[in-house]
Write a protein that binds this DNA or RNA. Structure first.
Lengths: 223, 223
DNA sequence: CCGGGCAAGTTTTGATCAAATTCACATCTA
DNA sequence: TAGATGTGAATTTGATCAAAACTTGCCCGG
């Protein structure tokens, strides 16, 4: 079966609990837009699709709803949240408040090797855009922000930002699906330059621009 | 038994699922410091204490850990997180970034009735401080912020702030336990004045001061 | 001879599953 | 149209399995 879970590889020293595996699978699906906004999710459907019992599925769903990746539709129904204009505005405010601060701290701590790693990711990101490969674009873009945030050494703030990504992931996919990967400008080059010179203020400024642009893109796309 | 759950009151029209009831109970306990930081929590202990099966308990714990209210200690144990200086700094940054914005929006929307409700809460808060009643102080202080944030009509930002409260709730209790309720200055009066005149900037400014003071209090108390 | 550390056995605890129950929605009938 | 009913899904429970922690006792070194 396609969705089968292999919790233990041949040489895998530790066995991950099933609920963790399920959580990660669903999380990535939401993050990279493999669920459409509004699409209903059923527990029993997932138990069959993933080949596990319902307790792990329930726990993974509980965690994802707590994180805002999924949403309770009142009566015992779970679905991918549909963003309205107000929600997008709130997400934009939160991202603009947090991500520049993380970029500032990342810049203060970034080594040459860190910058090269991020530059490599950004190269792959540009390649994905040129190919029109939406999925790779989403993966690399998330990877860029995640690696950069990790440099900031601020786990709580990073976690908050990760949650925000989960919320607009599905919509980002929809927007890309509409307009393709053209017109996806980013300020990653500015961010990288600021990181390379360990200039926190410049990094924060550039990240603010990148986030503002990204959220504006989503806002426009969803009308 | 003391911890028995009464999911349905006499006139309660809807019956809440057990996992929701368990979640709320545990959430309030964390929020108002009835768990000490570092105190271990076991699933089976809770099933016996609360008189429900383990699935609802597991789901409630999964949700609380996702929210940062509880923490997995690698080895099979769940505990209330212990805050270090770095964590407090991050929480302070996040609160100072978000709560003033919520206060600004609340001020733009606050009616006379809203202000009176908040003033009443603040009166009870002052009374609790005079009595030296730590638990009531925590309850009313949280109530003040929660009601104010609700006025802002920004569910995502409000949820983010609620999560932050869950993280420093236990430590706030510890600090109050050390120093009593003396020296608990707040800027709530300034906030109320700003709300009454619908002055968003003033409300944000006052809230920034209140948050900064509160987090500084925690920082000092935990050394 | 005494104390500390290692090891095997016991016990507690977490993870998972399958069955039974409850609930919400839809449909059918009067 | 309103009420009864059936269907399917969510919820909950209790049992079972596996793993980790604790305890006990033994062995070795000082």
């Amino acid at each position: 079966m396609a969705g089968q879970i292999s919790a233990k590889a041949a040489t895998d020293p530790i066995r991950l609990p099933a609920h963790v595996v399920v959580y990660r699978q669903l999380r990535d699906r939401v993050l990279f837009g493999e669920f459409e906004p509004g699409q209903p999710v059923t527990i029993q459907g997932l138990t069959e699709a993933l080949g596990v019992g319902m307790t792990p599925v329930r726990e993974a769903l509980r965690r994802l709803t707590a994180e805002g990746a999924l949403e309770f539709l009142g009566n015992r129904r779970i679905a991918v949240p549909v963003l309205d204009a107000k929600a997008i505005e709130e997400l934009a405010i939160a991202r603009k408040a947090l991500e520049p601060e993380l970029a500032r701290r990342a810049a203060q701590r970034a080594t040459q090797a860190d910058v090269m790693l991020l530059a490599e990711i950004d190269r792959r990101l540009d390649a994905a855009i040129r190919r029109g490969d939406v999925h790779s674009y989403l993966v690399e873009n998330h990877s860029f922000h995640a690696e950069l945030n990790a440099l900031a050494q601020a786990p709580i703030l990073t976690e908050m930002v990760d949650r925000l990504s989960l919320r607009f992931g599905p919509s980002l996919r929809v927007v890309c699906g509409q307009f393709g990967t053209r017109n996806l400008p980013d300020r990653h080059k500015d961010v990288l330059a600021a990181l390379a010179s360990n200039d926190g203020d410049a990094a924060a400024e550039a990240m603010l621009g990148d986030v503002a642009q990204g959220m504006e893109q989503i806002r426009q796309g969803l009308i």
